[in-house]
Design a protein around this nucleic acid. Sequence first.
DNA 1: TCTCTTTTTTGATCTGCGTCAATGTTGGAT
DNA 2: ATCCAACATTGACGCAGATCAAAAAAGAGA
Lengths: 266, 266
Amino acid sequence: MSAAQPHKVVSLAEFKAACQSCSLFQLCLPMGIADNELALLDKIIRRRRPLKRGEHLYQQGHSFQSLYAVRSGSIKTYATTEDGREQVTGFHLPGELLGLDAICTERHGCAAVALETCTVCELPYDQVDRLNEFLPGLQQQLVRMMSREILGGQALLALLGKRSAEERLAAYLLNLSGRFQRRGLSGTEFIMSMSRTDIGNYMGLAVETVSRMFTRFQEMGILSVRRKHVVVHQPERLRAIACQSGGCTVLGRAGAALPQTETKNG
Amino acid sequence: MSAAQPHKVVSLAEFKAACQSCSLFQLCLPMGIADNELALLDKIIRRRRPLKRGEHLYQQGHSFQSLYAVRSGSIKTYATTEDGREQVTGFHLPGELLGLDAICTERHGCAAVALETCTVCELPYDQVDRLNEFLPGLQQQLVRMMSREILGGQALLALLGKRSAEERLAAYLLNLSGRFQRRGLSGTEFIMSMSRTDIGNYMGLAVETVSRMFTRFQEMGILSVRRKHVVVHQPERLRAIACQSGGCTVLGRAGAALPQTETKNG
DNA sequence: TCTCTTTTTTGATCTGCGTCAATGTTGGAT
DNA sequence: ATCCAACATTGACGCAGATCAAAAAAGAGA
């Protein structure tokens, strides 16, 4: 992937292939896009050079210009409070959008940093209107994705409001698992690119608690963790734990706690 | 308010006055709407008969048809888990939208019930596209409002993740206060239409804790509560409590924990 | 008005998880 | 290979807030 020239003209097949693995995919292709429109889209969506671990895609407070979609790798978003502590607001895997929360204020309320080497596509927001003329339904699709984000947020709220540490971790793992699976990757064996500290921060738990829970799950034979490498042996038990107090409805069908990725275009 | 004939033709002035106090306001009027368009809008937006306390606007699982805006009164949204317990997902005051989370699944993930006598406006979602042709920017405005909802959700996450009961309640009260104030009502004296149980459920606290915190704030001289009637004597101290661990940045400028209502149309 | 139900408040006790502290592990830099 | 800094694990302890229990207050209906 030599991602040097951002506006390089690609063949249609090549482009479609790229978009399959890319993530703005959902914003465009499902709508039966014509070939000439695809060329237009290609002009507008920018491929950025890959981000290295620790590099920022944008900083908190920066003016909002574009939406981003993760193409590969993973990105953490976090907000820093005035006393210097950070609140992790999300982890973004391939196929997921970043920046939706900045549209209303036209300023990024959180920073986005690569957890590993990443590639992203960029959609300048001021082009959305223009693009919508050629791709009717684009904006509608955007609304749908935002709706999903809101729904996922509610699920997470329920989780943080009244679930034990064990339930939170179980739900978190199932969520990751589901997101990987939906991307065609293994849902039972994957790499968690985020640190324990980040997980704890995100889930409202102390690092130590996160660590203890991983140990407990391991002792129970539910999974194996070695550093960032996870193998889930008994997803059903994980699900049982996550749902034991009936959180599954709220959390969406699969007990996942965050933005789902399926699209229902009934 | 005889809300009998939904499609009654109203004079422009009358309509504008209605919309000032109504809430789909934000979806239409700020965009410099022409008079003939206004008439169209009036045809599409339905005024429903008032809801009495305890009546449902929609039930969990119902198919999604419309967005609703609260015109007066207040509405609670909640999801019921399979074991029959409920998770409150939000309180909606005049000027706020309901149903945004249902767009993606085309099914309501939570129920909406009136906490007191309410009036609402209804915008059939399948009309949004059509309406967008006449009111360019409508959909864009919708996107902006959803973005705000996402942002607010993140703030709430931060709150539930790592704030003490005292901080949560302080933030909750400030949030309510701000929302009333922004609607031109008093931010220091208002009626909390929701029960202590609902507040606790929403904020991830036991009812008893909520009650104790109100008592504590009262003993500190910060406010007076009598049943649902609240008078805030020292908002600064409330703010100091809500922000003491630096949550203000995340929570939006005023320490409010939920969807803000200001619009930035830079 | 009085009764019955629901909501709120207050007190007492118990526990999950945060905090502190110490040790082990890993990967990157030299 | 060796050092170092960041990350992860494990143990001990204390406290905020959940839970249990019961009384008090406020509506709702007759």
